[in-house]
Design a binder for these strands. Sequence first.
DNA 1: CAGAATCCCATACGATACTG
DNA 2: CAGTATCGTATGGGATTCTG
Lengths: 128, 128
Amino acid sequence: MLVSRHVTALRDQFPDGVFPAACPSRVVLDHVTSKWGVLILVSLTDGPQRWSDLRRRAQGVSEKMLAQTLRTLERDGFVHRDAQPVIPPRVDYSLTDRGEELAALLVPLLSWVAAHAEEVLESSDESR
Amino acid sequence: MLVSRHVTALRDQFPDGVFPAACPSRVVLDHVTSKWGVLILVSLTDGPQRWSDLRRRAQGVSEKMLAQTLRTLERDGFVHRDAQPVIPPRVDYSLTDRGEELAALLVPLLSWVAAHAEEVLESSDESR
DNA sequence: CAGAATCCCATACGATACTG
DNA sequence: CAGTATCGTATGGGATTCTG
């Protein structure tokens, strides 16, 4: 089964169960699990999208954070940026193969959270 | 297949592909994908662990953040806190059923990141 | 349209010290 | 041992303005 194979892999890599402090994994994990990183990666699983698409779909993202997150994801090789030299400018963002792999793992997470968020928050109080 | 079933579920819930801005899912997602939330949840997949275990395994976590993260995860019903009234005090943390479900989705993510972090960072420069 | 630049704030986070 | 309390900082993140 897929999950248990991953579990085994994780245990092999880190017998202590988590990443060492100075590990590169920590950096990448922070990029990926950043507030907008998750949302953008998952949004792109629907196919290539333009800047304005992403702004609309990742509701609430500021231009600054969209730009910053996209640049980070692009540098990490998760997102491909295709800027067409036309006027007005048109830029399409899409997942790289590496990005697809990663996003495929994110989708079940988002889905689970979406399905259980309400029952989770009703046990605690709603804020925080 | 498991992934595509989740994809379908996500699309059903959010035809636009992402959470609406004021959605409870956003809150829960932020808890779960917080810097230490992921690490603690995954660490606990190895079974119940004490405060000092978690401090050691989630290398680099400060006492403040460990306390804060554990409280959040407990309020969300992901983590169970078992404080035994002995001296010296002994407190065990473990995953609830809900926490197990969630952590099971986190493990493949961690594992993938761990396996690919180096190649990811070598394409970008190492910082950020 | 797709950003870059600037300003500013909230808070996530860390370090240290203290306690039942 | 398992925390809490306090303080200080870095930075994630938002609002606004400007531009090719």
